[in-house]
C-alpha cells in the first residue's frame, strides 16, 4: 500500500474511532418505521403490503452487502469498519424479520398457508432458509457469545452469512416477473464479494 494511502486510511480510521456504531440501530429502526408509516398513509402506492415487503427485503440485502464489504475494504484500502459490522448485521436481520413478518402477518395471515408456501414455492423455501441461517448469527452477535463460543468457533459459525446472503440474492431473482436489472446487480455484487473471499482462502492455504 502506498504511503500516502496508508496515512489517509489511518486518519480516516482515527476519525471513525470517534464515530459510535449505535446510530445504525436508531436509523435502521426509524427508517423501518417510516416505511411502515408510508405504507399506512398511501405513500407506498395502492398496493402497500407488497411494496413494504419488497422495501424491507431490499434494505436487508443492502445491509448484508454492506457487511460483506467490511473485510475487503480493510484489505484493499486499510479503512477499518469492523466496529460497525455487528450493527450492520443485526439491523439487516431486523429487516429480514420485518420482511418475513409483513409476508406472514399482513399478507398470508394463516399458519397453514405460510407452511404450504414455504414447502411448495422454491423461492420462498430458500428465502426462509436464509432467514433461518441468520437466526443463530443474530442470537450470537454479542460479546458474551463470542467469549462462550471462543473466537475461532464464533467466526466459523458466522460464515453462515455467506450462504444466507447468496440465498437472499437467488430469492430476489427468483421472485420477480421478467428480467428487471436490480436483482441481478445484487447477485453480481454478492457473488463478487464471495469470490474475493474464496481467493483469499486459497492464497492463505497456499502460503501456509
Amino acid at each position: 500500500m502506498p504511503v500516502s494511502q496508508q496515512s489517509l486510511s489511518r486518519s480516516i480510521n482515527a476519525t471513525l474511532r470517534r464515530v459510535p456504531a449505535w446510530p445504525i440501530y436508531i436509523i435502521g429502526a426509524a427508517w423501518a418505521g417510516w416505511l411502515f408509516y408510508l405504507g399506512l398513509t398511501g405513500g407506498l402506492g395502492p398496493e402497500p403490503i407488497n411494496a413494504l415487503e419488497r422495501r424491507y427485503g431490499e434494505v436487508a440485502l443492502q445491509l448484508l452487502v454492506a457487511g460483506l464489504f467490511v473485510t475487503p475494504l480493510r484489505t484493499w484500502t486499510g479503512v477499518n469498519l469492523v466496529k460497525f459490522r455487528r450493527a450492520l448485521g443485526l439491523t439487516a436481520f431486523f429487516y429480514v424479520l420485518a420482511h418475513f413478518l409483513v409476508w406472514a402477518v399482513l399478507d398470508l395471515r394463516s399458519l397453514a398457508r405460510i407452511g404450504e408456501e414455504i414447502v411448495k414455492r422454491p423461492y420462498i423455501t430458500i428465502g426462509f432458509a436464509a432467514f433461518l441461517l441468520l437466526i443463530p448469527l443474530a442470537l450470537t452477535s454479542n460479546n458474551i457469545s463470542i467469549k462462550r463460543l471462543g473466537a475461532a468457533t464464533w467466526r466459523k459459525l458466522h460464515r453462515l452469512t455467506y450462504p444466507a446472503v447468496l440465498l437472499g440474492a437467488i430469492h430476489y431473482i427468483w421472485l420477480v416477473k421478467g428480467y428487471p436489472i436490480e436483482p441481478f446487480i445484487y447477485a453480481a455484487v454478492i457473488v463478487g464479494l464471495l469470490l474475493v473471499r474464496l481467493r483469499w482462502t486459497r492464497l492463505r492455504s497456499a502460503t501456509a
Partner: peptide
C-alpha cells in the same frame, strides 16, 4: 390482493 385495501386488507 385487491388493490387499494391498505396495509391491513
Amino acid at each position: 390482493r385487491k388493490i387499494g385495501g391498505g396495509l391491513f386488507a
